[in-house]
Write a protein that binds this DNA or RNA. Structure first.
Length: 124
DNA sequence: GCATTGACGAAGG
DNA sequence: CCCTTCGCCAATG
């Protein structure tokens, strides 16, 4: 079955605007909500879990819409593969993301999560 | 409707 | 080791 790639059962359509059906975006939201307090994950890990490892960018894009989701999506727990708070600029204030993480017991230095690999959590 | 832009990541130079 | 390019796919201009 090398000729066919049928692993695309999820998601072509999405759009947080208008369409409220299950979509790649919503799946991202759900996974993000699974991240335990005090832990973090990466865009790539979420994308990989959803079967679209190469679409890590879409995960980040989904996070853009996450602000409007209920229950809220802990977007602060999603960082890039280096443990860097690449999304902090998209929060209300440039420091909010770090502050939220620190409230959960996560130490952040130089926009990067300390002991990132130790607190890294991956969906299963 | 094409071109640019991403909260990414892996690969190449 | 640092920088650039490519892939991925939706949103925006």
């Amino acid at each position: 079955m090398a000729a066919s790639k049928n692993n695309k059962e999820k998601l072509p359509t999405l759009l947080p605007s208008g369409n409220r059906e299950y979509s790649f975006f919503e799946q991202v939201f759900e996974v993000a909500r699974q991240i335990p307090m005090g832990r973090v994950t990466t865009y790539g890990a979420i994308a990989e879990y959803l079967g679209a490892k190469k679409s890590a960018r879409m995960v980040g894009w989904a996070m853009n819409a996450a602000h409007d989701q209920t229950p809220p999506v802990p977007a602060q727990r999603v960082v890039n593969r280096n443990g860097m708070l690449s999304g902090k600029a998209h929060f209300s204030t440039p420091t909010l993301m770090q502050e939220l993480l620190e409230k959960e017991g996560i130490t952040v230095q130089n926009d990067t999560v300390v002991d990132f690999e130790k607190i890294l959590w991956k969906p299963e």
